[in-house]
Design a binder for these strands. Structure first.
Lengths: 308, 308
DNA sequence: ACTGTTTTCTGAAGCGCTTTTTTATTGAAT
DNA sequence: ATTCAATAAAAAAGCGCTTCAGAAAACAGT
């Protein structure tokens, strides 16, 4: 029997026969496709998540389609529509600019959802949660122990949920330490945003001795801005990132950052969708994504001159 | 009429109607989907190309599916099969580890192909060519003028066509300048490969005064390795990248590299596929991708002690 | 008013598969 | 041999759309 199967497959290949997946999905009333929507495919955090999601999905014999929202609302809409039109078997949403309207729409069609840090409460949705507060606290504690007191924060362009979480965690942690949260400079989640924010921070007086960036890309942009103005990191000013992308690891100086395990995130999302799709009615679980401080070389003792 | 259309669409939305794209593709005997296959989605060169490809494809009202080969043959095979099964309207192949067998297979089904730097000669294929020789020559000339004579090269893991092109161009250019090509260290196209290669280069005596990396990621890995051993870039050793990814721009020191215009590449590929798909029988064109040297801060005059 | 032509509308056919139903086949039990 | 359940094989019925053929309607020309 296995050999028969093998022969059939061999002949199929020889005959160049590739089953039409459209017909298959149509007839089976169910596609073998998972979707994943991310904010920014150029951000290594997301590309790593996409890769591990794909790898795991392929293991379960799904195809995957990926859409990017680029932090833009109309692309978010298109992405959601596309998932609906393609009749995906499940969709992972790793982007906070996804409106509840669409989430509900997807849930209404009984398509399993795995969302990263979006707080979408629905029986058809699995939540992948990150404890930002803990991450932010670890970062700031680390800086605090190094003697930093004027710690600034650089956030993202919009007030998306998870971007906001990081900001709120910053404020909460600062206050818990009896420090005054500094006015926030906002970037746009990427390097150039960080660069611009970095320039603006340099105008603040007294200058912060440390800057916490909302992600690694922003941190890199900050450092570039600082370097251009003759400031050394970490000698003159400390900078931290968030996400622990491969970028953080190879950047010089190696970034102090928070590991969010993008790879585990992607895998977990794929696993969760698979599980939900084979056993409908399973109560949606909630996963906690591990978070851990990675101490690099971009943070150092608060410089004496600056604190003086 | 337009208002009627608008009303219909509004009602469709209200009724939560999303046309089944599988049924549509099946009935129309033609999908509205373009495929793109890349080596490594984490490499910013590719992610940028994917993004611009998607953007342009969406403008022409195509959906796009992206597959990654990860430089692995079995994934390459799966990616090709998937394109065939999904009955894509055209496919862009931005990965040199794609066997001619599969290219022919795709061409045989009359699916337009746009391949980047793959030398696939077929009437159904558009070629996007890069003049590596020119790029490499510009890089090496630049180093030569800075006084470098012992210029090493760090290549990729396998002998894929385009990776090989860069290598051959290195050798040709060196010889043209009357310099001796040094033995090549091979990376794996990413940072950690560059890092390992960097360590091995440090063992070579006399040490090269400059290293040409096959891409930006490798260059970053190299620099990390050099830094760890106390070498400063560019004071002690110069390093160049290739691709001019955003990484190169924000890295400290800003990388000297070669811009391959990944965004234009992606757009051109999408345009070419679109054009081929609407007018079958058009003779396949050939596009030349512009290439240009970007001088950064990772290259400097050959250090006197090293050349001595 | 009548035929010939073009345009618009309606309904049926069919895309390439999976699934369900029907029919044929076998095997055991009477 | 005959009946009935169990199993295998073959045929039919869609899945949700697009397309195409044919019917109906509209428009001219004589």
């Amino acid at each position: 029997m296995p050999e028969t199967r093998h022969r059939v497959l061999a002949i199929a290949r020889k005959l160049k026969y590739y089953p039409n997946s459209n017909a298959r999905s149509l007839a089976a009333r169910s596609s073998r496709t998972l979707g994943i929507i991310v904010s920014d495919i150029e951000n290594p955090f997301f590309s790593l998540a996409v890769r591990s999601f794909e790898a795991r999905a392929h293991r379960w014999r799904y195809d995957v389609i990926v859409s990017e929202t680029n932090y833009e609302l109309h692309l978010m809409r298109r992405a959601a529509e596309r998932m609906l039109e393609q009749k995906v078997r499940g969709v992972a949403i790793l982007t906070s600019e996804m409106s509840p309207t669409w989430l509900n729409e997807i849930a209404r069609q009984d398509i399993p959802i795995a969302c990263f840090d979006l707080d979408f409460v629905n029986k058809g949705a699995t939540n992948l949660k990150v404890d930002y507060l803990s991450g932010m606290r670890q970062v700031i504690d680390h800086l605090y122990q190094l003697g930093h007191r004027r710690i600034a924060y650089v956030g993202g362009r919009r007030t998306f949920k998870n971007i906001l979480s990081r900001h709120q965690s910053y404020i909460a942690t600062m206050e818990a330490l009896g420090l005054e949260p500094l006015p926030v400079a906002n970037g746009n989640q990427t390097m150039d945003g960080g660069y611009v924010a970095g320039k603006s921070i340099l105008g603040v007086s007294p200058r912060p001795t440390a800057v916490v960036a909302m992600n690694d890309l922003t941190a890199v942009g900050l450092i570039k801005a600082f370097n251009e103005c003759g400031l050394r990191v970490p000698a003159d000013i400390s900078v931290t990132g968030f996400d622990n992308t491969y970028l953080a690891e190879y950047f010089v100086p190696r970034l102090t950052t928070v590991d969010m395990h993008a790879d585990i995130l992607g895998e977990t999302a794929a696993d969760a969708l698979h599980e939900m799709s084979i056993s409908a009615g399973t109560p949606a679980k909630e996963y906690k994504i591990k978070i851990e401080l990675i101490i690099g070389k971009s943070t150092g003792p608060a410089s004496v001159t600056a604190t003086a």
